[in-house]
Design a binder for these strands. Structure first.
Lengths: 204, 204
DNA sequence: GTTTTAGGTAAACGATCGTTTACTTGGAGG
DNA sequence: CCTCCAAGTAAACGATCGTTTACCTAAAAC
């Protein structure tokens, strides 16, 4: 079979995402692949090496993604209603794409689950979990919201709470999508939330 | 030392909350208690029995808590502004108490973390996680919001999304409190969020 | 005062853990 | 055709896993 090393990575991640690092044995991984556990060591130095390679892979994938995906520009304030609506639609599309990425893309979804399971025993994983999720969406939302609020109210502290209002439901719906067989319901609720949020923002 | 059985439960929960069930050995638990692992089996049949006892304990504690803690009554609609404000304050106090319970109470906090770590490998734990968190606060919030919205707009679907808007930031701040040494910041943000939410609701 | 027993120890059980070793084998390169 | 090597197997390594056993001892019970 071709590219065994890649298949080991994928299978290990899937198992780590369900059972946690300590809950998965090297034997488990090998069994799924239909090889003996000794064969794994032709591709990776150790079980920890597999785990590290998964982290490394995600970091590469993330920077690559960030390179090609220039976050949508356009602030809330700089023009009339038409431009505001365009900015809204950009943010909505961006957020939904992010949500789909973290819930539907197999690698990203499993990676997020794995970090969730390792966050308390491994501080570095807790940091990564915050970086990827809040860094990806809420940080971006915070910037936009900060600009939006800059001329209407005193900004910095409000921006933080409004960003929380925006991102927290999206984050929570990721967890709901995990433990539900109906992925589409969660996605529809994300859209509803964003529309609701946008409507509130328009009234300010 | 008195009440070894209880101390085993507490220590095991603390370890399960950090490392997950599979990440904790019977030896680990015994070492913390300063006894040999053989002694554990004088109090519990197995490692799984300890885990089950933790679940059982929480279920008892929860029903007992629900009995004495009658959720605050008073809806948004049935009177003038004064009564509405009282209802708001009741909900706020209730929510903050719930937040403090799930983040500061050692047993509840560790229990929530443990469920978080076991949710993917054990469907029953995923159900419990949803029940305790969303059932405790969001279900209650949903009822109140539904009553509140009943005469203003078409209710059922909106109630669900508004309950999400209310609870999701609180839920997310629990996770932030976990991986932060500064617990007070998260609590203050919870208050801020509730105030912000209430202000939005008042404008409707 | 004797007996019983709850609660501890130390040691061993077979199973499984992650890892290493010795050996095999099919196919690419010279 | 011969060589080499990547990629597999089977077996064994010591360590640790959850659990059981045999033994001990202090205090409670009769």
């Amino acid at each position: 079979m071709i590219d065994t090393k890649e298949r080991i990575l994928q299978v290990a991640l899937k198992l780590f995402a369900r059972d946690g690092y300590e809950g998965v044995s090297v034997r488990n991984i090998a069994d799924v692949l239909g090889i003996t556990k000794g064969a794994l060591y032709k591709h990776y130095e150790s079980k920890q090496d597999i785990f590290d390679s998964i982290i490394k892979r995600m970091k590469e994938s993330d920077t690559e993604k960030a390179k090609k995906f220039d976050v949508p520009v356009g602030t809330f304030e700089n023009a009339g209603d038409a431009c505001r609506n365009i900015a809204f639609e950009n943010i909505k599309a961006f957020s939904i794409e992010m949500f789909k990425y973290w819930t539907e893309d197999e690698f990203a979804s499993n990676f997020r689950k794995m970090l969730t399971l390792e966050q308390y025993r491994n501080p570095e994983m807790a940091i990564l979990l915050n970086q990827y999720l809040t860094g990806g969406v809420v940080g971006y939302a915070k910037d936009l919201i900060r600009e939006s609020l800059l001329n209407t109210r005193n900004s910095e502290k409000d921006a933080e709470i409004v960003a929380l209002e925006y991102f927290a439901p999206i984050y929570m719906l990721m967890g709901l999508a995990d433990n539900s067989d109906d992925k589409d319901t969660a996605l529809k609720m994300v859209e509803k939330h964003i529309d609701y949020f946008m409507e509130i923002m328009r009234r300010e």
